[in-house]
Computed example of a mutant assay.
Amino acid sequence: MTTNEKTLAEQDDLTIFMLVKTMPEWLAMPVEERFGHFQRYVTPLLKKYEQTVRCRIFDTEFYSARVTDVWMWEAKSRHAYELIVEELRETPLWDRFFSIVEILAGVENAYARNYDREAVSA
């Protein structure tokens, strides 16, 4: 792989912030049932794409009424992330148990990389 090809491959990394809101049907379920749905629908997807996609879940209901959770997806492959979304859309998690409020995708330090500069961070 040439240096240019390696740089282009690295630029495929993507972080996606999926802002979601729990629906009344979800909140009406016992906690064990909620965890069961994640085990049934999310765990197999994370295992299937474990080499290319990672998910972290942040609770925000303490500080926001519009969004109750942020699902942060870290993808080494944009296509793998797209495939996960396609599969999630076929489950009751998508727009039944959770309302997908907004999806924000970003590339960490793209500005620095695009200008061949060192990223500013603390």
Rank of each mutant, 00 (worst) to 15 (best):
E108M: 11
T52F: 05
E87N: 00
E87V: 02
E61V: 05
P92I: 03
Y111P: 00
N4P: 00
A105T: 14
T68K: 02
R40F: 01
A110F: 06
W26L: 07
M1V: 04
E74S: 13
F17H: 08
R66Q: 08
F62A: 00
E61I: 09
F38P: 01
K48G: 01
P44E: 01
E61R: 08
A65W: 05
Y41M: 06
T2I: 03
Y63Q: 08
E50K: 01
V85Y: 00
F38L: 03
R96P: 00
M1E: 03
A75L: 09
M18S: 11
D116K: 11
Y63E: 07
A9C: 05
E5G: 00
G36I: 03
H37G: 03
A119T: 08
M29W: 10
S64R: 08
L104V: 15
A9M: 08
M72F: 04
H37S: 04
T60E: 03
M29R: 12
E108Q: 15
E10N: 11
T22V: 09
G106C: 11
E25P: 06
A112C: 05
M1L: 04
E32N: 10
A105G: 13
R66I: 02
R117L: 14
M29Y: 10
V20C: 10
Q11E: 07
Q39I: 01
V70T: 07
D95M: 10
D69E: 13
E61S: 12
P92M: 11
L19Q: 06
Y115T: 12
T68V: 05
G106Y: 11
E61P: 00
T60L: 06
D59Q: 11
Q11F: 06
R54M: 13
V85I: 09
R40D: 04
N114E: 14
T52E: 15
V85S: 07
A122R: 12
F38W: 00
D95Y: 05
D12I: 08
M72T: 04
K47P: 00
W94H: 09
V101D: 02
